[in-house]
Amino acid sequence: MTEIAIDVKHLTKKFGTRTVVNNIDIQVPKGKIYGFLGPNGSGKTTTIRMLCGLLTPTSGEGKCLGLDIMKDALLIRQKVGYMTQKFSFWDDLTVRENLEFTAQIYEMDNAAELVDETLIKLGLKKRENQLVGTLSGGWKQRLALSACILHKPEILLLDEPTAGVDPKARREFWDELGRLSDEGMTILVSTHYMDEAERCHELVYIAYGNLMVKGSVNEVINQTHLKTLEVSGLSLPLLQKQLEQDPEIAAMSLFGGMLRICGNDEQKLVDKLQNVKKQYSLTWRKSNTYLEDAFIYYLKKAQEN
């Protein structure tokens, strides 16, 4: 049986009367990359903050590396690296000073060595005395990751780490995550990018504070039982508008010159298209359901509840 690094049950967070995270269960296996998906404001950041002891859950229980998230927040922080959504290292400290500060806070024995090692690995040795505020976004992101893993944490929590980063840097970033995971680090990462979601061993999708689905990419897609058609024709945006309110259609999106239509009953979808086939000169074919289709489906489902 695989070991579980993060194990939380019935996790709930309320701010006043507003429930931001509602009764969520998450089990993250050790050494895996666990994707955390959901629309903006769905409670991803709040959940991550609760996992590393930055916020106290209103109710629920859970363990991080066997430590109680309600009581042992400080001990958990020693073993967890957390990369915040917004860059949160000190702009008015140099690259070296930021790393040194981090190493000292975690009471690393070989702080100086570690910092040098990290600087070289990062390729920032030449710029070690540059103020962090003057670095470009890509460099800041790499620095933040290096600083977060400086103390060799067992769990890495990443909150939308690649937002606003170019594809090449993103790819390199994920290659690095792959290496870390291979070395046994457990990684929980929130993202909006589908390609990143597909790189995760397991996923969880939350919307409006509720956990909608979890499992591997294929499991998440298969659990929707969606059938998908790729439709070509004229004035597809008009068609999309026309079908928008249709209860049979679970998700719909324009993809280049095609409209992807998903629904639980393929025959009903075909019937609908037959009705307007001439009007829009439609042709269609069956397609695989993508992860994005699944997420749109779950979001819609969450909105209906």
Binding site: C52, L74, Y82, T84, S88, W90
Partner: peptide, 11 residues
């Protein structure tokens, strides 16, 4: 500045 979140995530 948002750096408090970083500081507090440390032990």
């Amino acid at each position: 500045r948002g750096t408090m979140e970083n500081l507090l995530s440390m032990p």
